[in-house]
Nucleic acid binder design. Structure first.
Lengths: 157, 157
DNA sequence: CTCAATCCCGACGAAATCACTTGGGATTGA
DNA sequence: TCAATCCCAAGTGATTTCGTCGGGATTGAG
């Protein structure tokens, strides 16, 4: 059985998010060196290839990767890693980040939530949404791709 | 069919979290006025009573509410609303906030994740976890219980 | 030209999880 | 005594997840 790295509690991303991010990181490592095939990545990351395909389609439709068909084909990032915020990746893979559908701001709230008068709870979900969105917006794929030179140059001296 | 307020994307809390928070808010409103029965709350919030029971048990075991049995019994908050952080409520209801089991800091990471050498991704999950925990730690139940006097005293002038 | 590698796409299915429901207790105030 | 309440375990139907399977369409290399 494959080990499950995704948690089972609150705020659990599914394997879509987990595998998809790992896929993107692999593409990030390969950036500038031509397309990588899914077969390669599936081997390196030890993930089911057929399932990765589905995720790759989603990422392609979201404009995050581009594909080249035929022999020696594969996927490449559509943009440099530093220009791909993690929020975009996870939104494409998992759907909206909002924890509740009524986690929208005041204007729209009445439309979807008939509990407006008594619903003080939605303030909570908005806070959660903003916290997550903030964290994911400020992080790009480049932050997850290890530097080319592995000699300790993590924090600039 | 009951309307579903919880979202279906990433970071979706389940009904446990949603209903449980609503339950706690009701108890917060009633704080200092004796126990509230689940039947009452189920009516006010339009939620299935038997299901609320399960959530109440969890909250009780977590030390967040205390119960009185028998007629005129019910549940009360174990502490004043201002001393109940929302993180504690949601952790009790939904499990750990971490989005991935490997969202632990460096020391423990090797123990659960054999991908350490290549796994740069776990940095992401830690960021997400911290963002959510931060938002939920600084918010208490008191922030969600509307003030007794409904005259507009939300933002202090 | 041929062939193997690759992407593309839709359908299917087993397993898990969710959101409850059912059916009973035990305890207590009126 | 009795009704209201909490307590608890087990079951259940629908949905979602996590993939698999089978077959195309496209392209570079030999």
């Amino acid at each position: 059985m494959r080990p499950a790295f995704h948690g089972s509690g609150a705020v659990a991303f599914s394997t879509k998010g987990e595998y998809g991010v790992r896929l993107m990181v692999q593409l990030g490592r390969h950036y500038g060196a031509g397309p990588s095939s899914l077969a390669e990545i599936a081997t390196v990351e030890d993930l089911p290839r057929a399932y990765l395909e589905q995720l790759a389609f989603v990422l392609r439709d979201a404009g995050l990767v581009s594909s080249t068909r035929g022999a020696r084909g594969g996927y490449t990032l559509a943009r440099p890693p530093a220009e791909i915020p993690m929020s975009e990746i996870l939104r494409a893979l998992e759907g909206p980040l909002a924890p509740m559908i009524c986690a929208t701001d005041a204007a729209d709230h009445d439309l979807v939530c008939d509990r407006t008068s008594t619903c003080t709870v939605n303030f909570l979900w908005i806070r959660v949404r903003d916290a997550i969105a903030g964290a994911l917006d400020t992080l790009t794929l480049a932050d997850l791709v290890p530097p080319r030179r592995p000699s300790g140059v993590i924090g600039q001296p």
